[in-house]
């Protein structure tokens, strides 16, 4: 029902350049302890080429929102369109690449074969597979590790390989769910600046879930602050930082001002209060 409506609304609905558009989106999980309102009345538009971070404490629905975009969860009400399609159509036309919290590389495949996995499934010819693998491995700085197995690489390299896998089929939209959450701070800084370069080079739209304020401010053109119980958007901050961002931009007053606003947003959503 909802999917039909959103398709029908397309003509007068979201502007054509909107990659993701959510209107009054809600999602409720039924559990043994009663319903859990993971998402409540979310309205959000993400334009092409934006880098959007979702930040908030556990249970605020940031991952659920990303999974709803990816058609891994079904909304209870409201509409959601991706490139003007329903999430299901978007998934079936391979409109996005998804990077999970864990690398989820298949241990029986080499790095190269892992990157080839989506290409095999989508039926790319062998020659094009090889060329795309070479290009994406170069993009994530993993050239030379094609024949290694995932368990022979460090956690950071594994996560880079999983990003290469998501990039291999050139979807315009990249969904990243705390991809660097399990890595140490130094590796994370490095991967963050690499991700920015990659974003500049490929001009993709990126949705990035994190619970680190500096990471969100450093990466994003738009920061969506979310709060739990029920999961909702409390603030949407357009970043004023330039597109070129060296690591030490994080000591500038502009950076700190945005970080302070994110923190205010989290506080307004009672995110700093004790959970009973």
């Amino acid at each position: 029902m909802t999917t039909d409506l959103s398709a029908a609304n397309m003509d007068k609905g979201p502007p054509p350049q909107a990659v993701v558009s959510a209107q009054n989106l809600s999602l409720t999980f039924g559990t043994n302890d009663g319903p859990v309102h993971a998402l409540s009345d979310v309205n959000l538009t993400i334009a092409k080429g934006e880098f959007v971070s979702f930040i908030g404490p556990s249970g605020c629905g940031k991952t659920t929102f990303l999974r709803t975009i990816a058609d891994l969860e079904q909304p209870s009400s409201g509409t959601l369109s991706i490139n003007g399609m329903t999430p299901r159509q978007a998934r079936e036309t391979r409109a996005y690449g998804y990077v999970f919290q864990a690398p989820a590389l298949y241990p029986w495949r080499t790095i190269e074969k892992n990157v080839a996995l989506p290409l095999e499934i989508m039926g790319y010819p062998k020659a094009e597979q090889a060329q795309r693998i070479a290009r994406t491995m170069e993009l994530v700085n993993l050239a030379g590790f094609e024949q290694k197995f995932p368990w022979q690489l460090s956690g950071g390299m594994q996560q880079r390989a999983s990003i290469a896998r998501a990039l291999a089929f050139d979807a315009d939209l990249l969904l990243m769910d705390e991809p660097f959450g399990a890595l140490d701070e130094i590796v994370r800084d490095h991967l963050n600046s690499e991700l920015l370069k990659l974003w500049a080079a490929t001009n993709k739209t990126i949705c990035f879930v994190t619970h680190s304020i500096p990471e969100a401010v450093y990466l994003s053109t738009k920061i969506v602050v979310m709060s739990p119980r029920p999961g909702r958007v409390t603030d949407v901050i357009e970043s004023t930082l330039p597109k070129e961002r060296p690591l030490d931009i994080r000591e500038t007053p502009e950076f700190l001002a945005i970080a302070a606003r994110v923190r205010d947003g989290l506080r307004a959503g009672h995110s700093y209060e004790d959970v009973v």
């Binding site: 079936e92 391979r94 989820a104 095999e120 499934i121």
Partner: peptide
Amino acid sequence: SSIERDLMRTYAANYWQTLFK
């Protein structure tokens, strides 16, 4: 694992592709 399955779902892989790969 569920992440490995979700990955296949994001590729819109069919039953047999998920089974064999």
